[in-house]
Computed example of a mutant assay.
Amino acid sequence: MSPAGARGVVSPCLRAADRPAELEPDYSEKSFRDGLDLSDQTLKGMGRDLATAETVPGVEAPVLAGMDKDQYNATLNKEFGLRLSSAAS
Rank of each mutant, 00 (worst) to 15 (best):
23 L>Y: 05
1 M>W: 09
51 A>S: 15
10 V>A: 09
62 P>K: 00
62 P>S: 02
30 K>P: 00
31 S>H: 14
73 N>P: 00
29 E>T: 09
34 D>I: 05
37 D>N: 09
27 Y>E: 08
49 D>A: 15
54 E>V: 15
6 A>K: 13
71 Q>P: 00
62 P>V: 00
22 E>C: 00
11 S>F: 05
44 K>V: 00
30 K>M: 03
68 D>I: 04
84 L>H: 11
20 P>C: 07
71 Q>A: 15
87 A>R: 12
24 E>S: 10
88 A>C: 06
59 V>I: 14
64 L>C: 06
4 A>Q: 13
49 D>S: 14
88 A>S: 10
9 V>A: 12
37 D>M: 06
74 A>P: 01
22 E>H: 01
67 M>Y: 05
79 E>M: 13
13 C>G: 08
8 G>N: 13
79 E>C: 11
16 A>M: 06
59 V>A: 02
28 S>Q: 09
22 E>R: 04
70 D>P: 00
65 A>K: 04
88 A>H: 07
78 K>M: 07
15 R>E: 14
79 E>H: 11
68 D>T: 05
54 E>R: 15
69 K>W: 04
23 L>A: 03
29 E>C: 03
43 L>W: 02
55 T>A: 08
65 A>D: 03
3 P>G: 02
77 N>W: 00
84 L>T: 03
64 L>W: 06
85 S>R: 12
68 D>G: 04
84 L>C: 02
79 E>P: 00
81 G>H: 11
30 K>H: 02
50 L>A: 12
4 A>F: 03
47 G>L: 13
12 P>L: 11
88 A>Q: 12
85 S>H: 13
10 V>G: 04
62 P>Q: 01
84 L>Y: 07
30 K>F: 02
35 G>L: 05
58 G>N: 06
7 R>S: 10
14 L>D: 07
56 V>I: 14
8 G>D: 15
89 S>P: 12
88 A>I: 06
79 E>K: 13
48 R>G: 08
51 A>I: 05
7 R>H: 15
34 D>S: 10
86 S>R: 15
8 G>M: 14
51 A>K: 08
51 A>N: 06
21 A>R: 15
3 P>V: 13
50 L>D: 02
2 S>Y: 04
86 S>M: 11
39 S>K: 07
67 M>G: 02
78 K>H: 10
13 C>L: 15
23 L>V: 00
74 A>Q: 13
21 A>D: 12
33 R>W: 05
10 V>C: 10
1 M>T: 13
83 R>N: 04
48 R>K: 12
54 E>I: 14
35 G>Y: 03
65 A>V: 03
51 A>M: 15
46 M>W: 14
24 E>Q: 14
